[in-house]
């Protein structure tokens, strides 16, 4: 009768794996929560075909507090995160939310029509629509069959097929 079974031995590995997983994840949280070195605000850029969409996470920011400019394909946003109320530093048990002045600018990969830029700010999420200029839209170039020399016309035709 076997005393040692591989099955239960592997269970121990699984426990260890889970334990290490948990440990690694807690490290991750410890480093992530202060959001050190991360740009603020975090944003995503979408290419919707005729326009670009930038979404930015700006919780606590009102439309009046947000300063948004577009010039030469560079979008600049700036604002200030003010702590709620006048809470003394020693009252805080935990502080993960960033405070202070912030500014970010990003350049959009294509030419945009500055006059038709739209921005919405709802529940702390900014949506910025940047329509592309018509010249930036891909232009279809018609391709015609070349008729270079009459003598080898048949040969060119054969190659193009």
């Amino acid at each position: 009768m076997p005393v040692f079974r591989w099955g239960s031995a592997f269970d121990a590995f699984r426990d260890l794996e889970r334990e290490v997983d948990r440990w690694v994840r807690s490290m991750d949280i410890a480093f992530e929560n202060p959001r050190i070195g991360r740009p603020y605000p975090m944003l995503n850029l979408y290419d919707l075909g005729s326009e670009y969409l930038i979404t930015a996470e700006l919780s606590g920011c009102t439309a009046a507090e947000l300063d948004l400019t577009v010039a030469n394909g560079v979008v600049t946003m700036r604002g200030k995160r003010t702590p709620a109320g006048d809470v003394p530093e020693d009252r805080f048990r935990r502080r993960e939310r960033p405070i202070g002045n912030w500014e970010r600018s990003i350049s959009v990969p294509e030419r945009i029509n500055d006059d038709d830029v739209r921005a919405e700010l709802n529940d702390g999420l900014l949506k910025l629509y940047l329509p592309k200029t018509p010249s930036a839209a891909p232009k279809q170039i018609p391709v015609t069959k070349g008729r270079s020399e009459i003598s080898n016309e048949n040969a060119t035709e054969g190659e193009s097929r």
């Binding site: 944003l43 995503n44 850029l45 290419d47 990969p109 949506k127």
Partner: peptide, 16 residues
């Protein structure tokens, strides 16, 4: 969170 855009293939640059 309501997705601002479901079509993820349109995502060009992602930070979050």
């Amino acid at each position: 969170v309501d997705m601002p855009n479901d079509r993820l293939e349109t995502l060009v640059h992602q930070e979050y």
